[in-house]
Every structure is written in structure tokens, then in C-alpha cells.
Design a protein around this nucleic acid. Structure first.
Lengths: 109, 109
DNA sequence: TATATACATTGCAATATTACGATGAATGTT
DNA sequence: AACATTCATCGTAATATTGCAATGTATATA
């Protein structure tokens, strides 16, 4: 099938999975890291930086935008993309909640 | 194509993306949460718990195992799966490094 | 107005993922 | 030995993802 049965899972599980899927590509990780480092940027920079075609990068940016991780504001001909701080810490919390659920000390098996 | 150009990115970026991909399915999130909660379990439980076919769950378990997040030890007829604490905190660190790179205070744009 | 620049969108080909029935392998039970 | 139970693997169908050329759109500049 290739289609996920989301109705079997909780909203939190589906949400976390969806966010993880957006992070599940090195180009999107690279874009985020570049945004973090430069604190603002435009698509043109990324084509130079990443070595992927402009269309491909635009598509990755759209996915990041759709999850709300980044926002783009038109600046004349180019677009300034930057990380949404609210959404960023929201997502950070999602992962932290998952990871901190497991007590580091225990070793079963 | 459908094939990721991993050679364009750093090893860290590819690794993080790969781990994120494993977390990018609600069934695998649910499996991990169930493992965290019960601290040990077998496949049979999960079929009841998740409502997916046994073959499907076995496949998800394999993906989790391949990334090293969980380990399975044969226990007679059944298999005890549990989270690998070392790998777990390794992955936790990967995400923490990504998230903490962004200073919460700044708001650009 | 004509042209250049910076993205976004569309359409397509190649590959990956999801789900499951059927079957196989291993262990336990009668 | 015959059967049941538990899980893994194989094969397959449906859908999703990745990447890019081509094209579209909007703004700026000559």
C-alpha cells in the first residue's frame, strides 16, 4: 500500500511521526543547520551551498514550511527564510518528551 | 528518482536523517512508547496493541533493530524486545545537538 | 517596455515505503 | 511424532518520496 494507517494511533504519535518525516532527509537537516548558523538566508544561497537543483531545494523548503518549522518572507526578488522559534521549541519538546520517557539507568534483558 | 543524494551531505546529517526516518512512522513511535512503558515485551503483545498485521509489525521491529534502537533476545518461542539504552541516549544527543543549536531568544525577520 | 533575477509549480521517471497474505523456521506441548 | 505458537521472510499491490527539466510568476533594472 504505502499509505500509513494513522487512525490506529494517537494524535501525538502521528504528529511526532510527521515531524520526524520532515527531518528525515539530509538536505532538510542541512537547510535547517544553515538557517541556524546564518540566522537568515535565501533560496539562492542554498543552491550554491547544497548542490541540489533549485527546484529540488524549493520543494524541501516547502515541506519545512508546511510543518511550520520555517517561515519565508518575501524581500523584493528573493525570499528570506528563517526558523520559527515557537514551532522550533514545540518540536524540540515533542522529541524531548519521547526521549526522556526512557529512564537511562535501567538495563533490562 | 526517489533516491537520496547522500554524498552531498555530511555523515552527521545523513545519520540524523536516517534516524529520523526510523522515527517517522506512528507505529514505530507506538512500539517505542510501549517498550518504554512496559520495559520489555514480545511481538505478540504488539499485534494486540497496535492492530496491524503481524507481518507488518515484524517489519517495523526490524527497522528499529537495524538502527540499533531496540534489541531482541529469543526467549523460547517468543522474542523479548527492549530499548538499547546506549543507542537511545546516542540518538537523544543527535537531536539535542540539532535543537540546541538554535538560540531560543533570537527572533529574526 | 524588454530583460534579468529569484523562486514556485508542474510533470515525469526512478526508487522507497507501507501493508499484508502466504509461507518458512524454531521452539514448545500433547 | 503431530500439532500449536511465535515470529521472520518473501512476494506483491498501492502509494509516497526524491530529483530535475521545463515552465510560470513576480519583482527589479536597463
Amino acid at each position: 500500500m504505502g499509505v500509513t494507517k494513522t487512525d490506529l494511533f494517537t494524535e501525538q504519535q502521528n504528529e511526532l511521526a510527521k515531524v520526524a518525516k520532515v527531518l528525515a532527509h539530509p538536505a532538510r537537516i542541512a537547510i535547517l543547520q544553515y538557517l541556524i548558523q546564518s540566522n537568515t538566508c535565501i533560496n539562492g544561497d542554498l543552491v550554491q551551498e547544497l548542490g541540489l537543483a533549485q527546484a529540488t531545494i524549493s520543494q524541501h523548503l516547502r515541506e519545512l514550511k508546511e510543518t511550520g518549522i520555517i517561515r519565508g518572507s518575501i524581500e523584493g526578488v528573493s525570499v528570506n527564510y528563517c526558523i520559527d522559534p515557537i514551532r522550533w521549541s514545540e518540536i524540540q519538546n515533542l522529541f524531548e518528551t519521547l526521549f526522556s520517557g526512557f529512564p537511562k539507568i535501567t538495563d533490562c534483558c
